[in-house]
Design a protein around this nucleic acid. Sequence first.
DNA 1: GTGGTCTAGACCACG
DNA 2: GTGGTCTAGACCACC
Lengths: 134, 134, 134, 134
Amino acid sequence: MTCESGKMFFQIDSTNGIPVYEQVARQVTFAVANGALQSGELVPSVRQLARELAINPNTVARAYRQLQDQNILESRRGTGMVIANGARPICKTERTRILRERIGYVIDEALQSQLTKEEIQKLFQSELGKKRGK
Amino acid sequence: MTCESGKMFFQIDSTNGIPVYEQVARQVTFAVANGALQSGELVPSVRQLARELAINPNTVARAYRQLQDQNILESRRGTGMVIANGARPICKTERTRILRERIGYVIDEALQSQLTKEEIQKLFQSELGKKRGK
Amino acid sequence: MTCESGKMFFQIDSTNGIPVYEQVARQVTFAVANGALQSGELVPSVRQLARELAINPNTVARAYRQLQDQNILESRRGTGMVIANGARPICKTERTRILRERIGYVIDEALQSQLTKEEIQKLFQSELGKKRGK
Amino acid sequence: MTCESGKMFFQIDSTNGIPVYEQVARQVTFAVANGALQSGELVPSVRQLARELAINPNTVARAYRQLQDQNILESRRGTGMVIANGARPICKTERTRILRERIGYVIDEALQSQLTKEEIQKLFQSELGKKRGK
DNA sequence: GTGGTCTAGACCACG
DNA sequence: GTGGTCTAGACCACC
């Protein structure tokens, strides 16, 4: 599932084990970290985004609630949710934390399978090579 | 939780999000892939392994049942479960499949966060460097 | 034990030696093979079906899990289990496989008892004649 | 697993769901029904048969115990087990009972799968045709 | 509400 | 002793 909404580009995979609300929250976080979304900008409304992603509005609401708790979003009554002041450094830190954590888990698992670091390195390169991106 | 049982060394982390039965199954799979367990060898009995890992026998049984469905284990009535004939290639393939899949997910997520391949590569190296292992 | 649930008609005999979860799984398989259940349709929820058949929810869950492993069902988080895309051909094949296998076993046993094919044929006709059905 | 022992020819399949002891008992029953074994004849000793079939002696013993209960075998102290007087009619009846029962189960299952009697008939012919035998 | 995981403990069949 | 099935009931995440 992918969709473009405002300045955001969402890509949801409901089969990869990561909760949908978590994926939504992360993608907002990442967009702020990149500078794609700036403090004060409106994010898509709960209902609109839910419609566009064909997911339950509760799921979007939960993602936004979590972002509020992290001081990344704040609600403007009568207007919607906007990127909070000071969100960018939080998001950058958060982005690195999330990615490092997930990379660490994968490495742990590979080590546990008795692969050597070198073999893990090779697998990683091989997968990275398959992907298109900068 | 770690334990040594027969030729196997188990390490279970009940807090990392991966179901315990899945961790047990993977570790058997990995051990066969490594050659630590060979076709015809008995694996620890459901009850014994459950006792040693301090988990419920049903959880071990579920892991073993899944391995049966994958033609990695077969049950010998009244005797126990043994590594099936032809299990090793299955396990090797399975090991690579599991690790590649998980690596792929992490890379996807990192790319989506607008990191460049080079940046992802650096993060990976940094995390791999932190680990001890061969 | 019989029950009607949604488009399904279940008939469970807990004394015939075939595990209850297996009977549940087969009946879903057969219903898909017949076209009574179509891709995308929800099957009865684990809890509801368990209540209606007066069995334990875990037993139903096990049947459904097995069907998931066979790519016949897929779970929609928070929604329920639906018939997977492409389930029908799988179910048709599976139905024939199951029945042929069981017929084959019976014939083997009869041959081993030194009955001739003709005698086996007669026994079969005689039993088939006793049954009511189309 | 197959073996020839005295006048008996045993064929054991430990994967077809029928308990091994039951398969042993049935094959003795069938041999008596055919006249291959006659009243007063010795059957192979528990230990010898167990060795030849590579199964547990307890399993053979259990089969023989069941046959004793059915008045098909009787033990001669210091000699072994022999086919009892009057065993043949018992075995003939028993053979038909067993086969009819198993055929009935299979037909029931096929009917439950919504196959018509005609379709079941065809499946049966097809499987019978595959077998070699008289 | 949904499914998923896990525990605890029973009973059975088999060797 | 072994695995296999089933029950009862808890807790969690998700929608």
